[in-house]
Computed example of a mutant assay.
Amino acid sequence: MILSDAEHQNVADAIRRAETSTSGEILCVLSEADSYYPQVALAWAAAIALLVPYLLWLTGIDIGMMMPPGWQPGHWEDATTIAYHRFGLGYTVLPIALFILTYAVTLVPPVSRFLTPRRIRRQHVHRSALEQFRARGLRRTARRTGVLIFVSLSDRQAEVIADEGIYTRVPPEAWADAVATIVAGIKRNEIATGLVEAVERVGTLLATHFPPSAENPNELPDKVVEL
């Protein structure tokens, strides 16, 4: 478990308190799964495989001399031919080796996150949040007022996704404070505290635009779902 039982209870209580003053429904999803960016790894591997041999050539380093000795000229070969063979083999083997090594290293999650542009990581988190929004049934609320607070611990990012009924009155940028609160909590290693504060901010915003209805049913579970 990512959160302790007590922390789960604290977040659940915060959700219940927030929903008493609004007809909106709040659900939290917390993901600890490592994020992989194979397309970024491929780009880095290709760049390193192409650039390093070229830079070595510019600096005057003979890549052919990196190949193991032992080539002996035959009766039709001379030293110049052997040198060309070594040079060609060096420019074949070195890029392949660099590509494989770089690709393997850049797939390691911490390295991958460091080398992946923030914009690409944000797009990944957004897609993951949308998938959870659909999978958790937030579109099945009566007034389309479901709100998902999605947190990716591996990417240290968060996303707030609201249903159509809320987006008509609350623009996406209105959730920025809640997202910043979660990210700050992750950095302090106080995930539950950040979630509780984010739920309170989301609840305050919902209460302003979506006061509770006469019945105000509880349509979504008041809890944190861990992935």
Rank of each mutant, 00 (worst) to 15 (best):
1 M>K: 12
3 L>P: 09
8 H>L: 07
9 Q>L: 13
9 Q>W: 02
10 N>K: 15
12 A>I: 09
19 E>I: 09
21 S>W: 05
26 I>C: 06
29 V>K: 11
30 L>Q: 11
31 S>F: 00
34 D>C: 05
38 P>Q: 05
38 P>S: 04
39 Q>H: 14
40 V>G: 01
48 I>M: 15
49 A>W: 06
49 A>C: 13
50 L>E: 05
51 L>N: 06
51 L>R: 08
52 V>G: 08
54 Y>M: 14
59 T>L: 14
61 I>A: 14
63 I>S: 06
64 G>S: 12
65 M>L: 10
65 M>Q: 13
67 M>F: 07
67 M>C: 12
69 P>Y: 04
70 G>M: 05
78 D>C: 00
83 A>W: 12
83 A>Q: 14
89 L>R: 04
92 T>I: 09
92 T>P: 02
93 V>H: 02
95 P>V: 03
96 I>K: 01
96 I>N: 04
96 I>Y: 06
99 F>R: 03
100 I>Y: 05
105 V>I: 15
110 P>W: 00
112 S>A: 15
112 S>M: 02
112 S>K: 02
112 S>F: 01
116 T>E: 06
117 P>M: 02
119 R>E: 12
122 R>S: 04
126 H>Y: 11
126 H>S: 10
126 H>N: 09
132 Q>K: 13
133 F>L: 10
134 R>D: 11
135 A>Y: 07
135 A>M: 10
138 L>M: 07
139 R>H: 08
139 R>C: 03
140 R>H: 11
140 R>W: 04
143 R>F: 01
143 R>Y: 00
145 T>V: 03
146 G>R: 10
148 L>W: 07
149 I>E: 03
149 I>N: 05
152 S>Y: 01
152 S>M: 00
153 L>T: 12
153 L>G: 05
153 L>W: 07
154 S>R: 02
156 R>V: 00
156 R>H: 09
161 I>R: 03
162 A>S: 13
164 E>H: 11
167 Y>K: 15
167 Y>G: 04
169 R>Q: 15
171 P>G: 08
173 E>M: 04
173 E>C: 00
173 E>V: 07
175 W>V: 01
175 W>D: 05
179 V>F: 05
180 A>W: 03
182 I>Y: 06
185 G>E: 04
188 R>H: 07
189 N>D: 10
191 I>L: 05
191 I>F: 06
199 V>G: 09
201 R>S: 12
205 L>A: 07
206 L>P: 11
206 L>A: 08
207 A>S: 15
207 A>Y: 10
213 S>K: 13
215 E>C: 04
216 N>F: 05
216 N>E: 09
219 E>F: 09
221 P>Y: 04
224 V>G: 06
225 V>S: 06
226 E>L: 03
